[in-house]
């Protein structure tokens, strides 16, 4: 039982990281139909920012430096995302395949640039000692960093919910996901909301990158690519454009993967893929998706 609790919370934590990547992917796709293959590169950028900050600028290993580095990673991810939207994607509106292709190219370029700058070996990022502690739940000991991932993801989810529910831009995004051409016809420029969605999606991905350095105890050029694939799966299972759906799917994917991988190494990844196939067969629009795109 204690093993189950430890694994379950670890999986929940991994799901939280998936959520940070997938929420942005889901909104970007939901609003504009852009499948963003460069999203993993945003995550990796955030991870390298954390590495740089905690080893070169404030290498004191304190909790406050770590928290600041989380924020910086978010900003780096957000700036990268906005630059991507402004420089590459903006000019290809309504050319959906080309948009996806450009982000594929960007992901390719970014991965090889990271490789050229930082080398192929993972760079080690040491989290503050406080995160090495464990919490006792029943008979199980669980690493405290898991709760950090879950807490940050929960904050992002709540902030997302409040923004969607109570702000004008949130209203435009919700309406745009529902029916973009109608919103445009009413004289509202959806493209501004789109830039904003890239900003928050990039921020969440950068944040996820910072936390992923703790989860994976370091950062390598392909860190983001590894997360991106499972984030895609999460988005499809959850339903494109639905943030709550993404959150539920992230938990399902993360816990399934960790629990099954414990018993047979690699089988968890396999089971998650089969889960995706099953969801698509039974419910092609995903758990909370409105319409199949």
């Amino acid at each position: 039982m204690e093993i189950f609790i430890t694994l379950f919370i670890t999986g929940f934590g991994l799901g939280a990281l998936y959520f940070l990547v997938a929420s942005g992917l889901s909104l970007i796709y939901g609003l504009m139909g852009v499948l963003n293959f460069a999203h993993g590169a945003f995550l990796t950028a955030g991870a390298y920012a954390t590495w740089y900050f905690t080893t070169s600028i404030r290498a004191d290993g304190s909790l406050s430096s770590y928290v600041i580095s989380l924020f910086i990673a978010g900003v780096v991810g957000a700036l990268f995302a906005v630059a991507t939207e402004q420089i590459l994607i903006k000019y290809l509106y309504d050319r959906h395949i080309d948009q996806a292709l450009v982000t594929v190219g960007l992901g390719f370029v970014a991965t090889s640039a990271y490789l050229g700058w930082f080398g192929s070996d993972p760079l080690i990022v040491l989290p503050p000692t406080q995160l090495y502690n464990t919490v006792q739940i029943g008979d199980a000991f669980v690493g405290i960093d898991r709760f950090l991932y879950i807490g940050v993801a929960a904050l992002v989810l709540i902030a997302n919910f409040l923004m969607m529910r109570y702000t004008r831009i949130g209203l435009i995004i919700r309406a745009g996901v529902e029916n973009r051409s109608m919103v445009t016809a009413l004289g509202i420029d959806v493209r501004k909301a789109f830039t904003f969605v890239f900003f928050i999606g990039g921020f969440a991905a950068g944040l996820g990158g910072a936390l992923a350095t703790t989860y994976a105890s370091g950062v390598g050029p392909t860190l983001g690519d590894a997360f991106l694939i499972y984030a895609f799966i999460t988005v499809v299972i959850g339903g494109m454009g639905s943030v709550p759906g993404t959150a539920i799917a992230a938990i399902v994917v993360g816990t399934t993967q960790v629990l099954v991988n414990y018993y047979v190494q690699g089988l968890g990844d396999f089971v998650v893929v089969m889960l995706l196939a099953l969801v698509l067969l039974v419910r092609p629009q995903g758990l909370l998706g409105k319409v199949a795109h």
């Binding site: 139909g33 092609p284 199949a292």
Partner: peptide
């Protein structure tokens, strides 16, 4: 069974 981008992801 699915089309377009969803097909790509599967």
């Amino acid at each position: 069974r699915v089309k377009g981008i969803a097909f790509a992801m599967v």
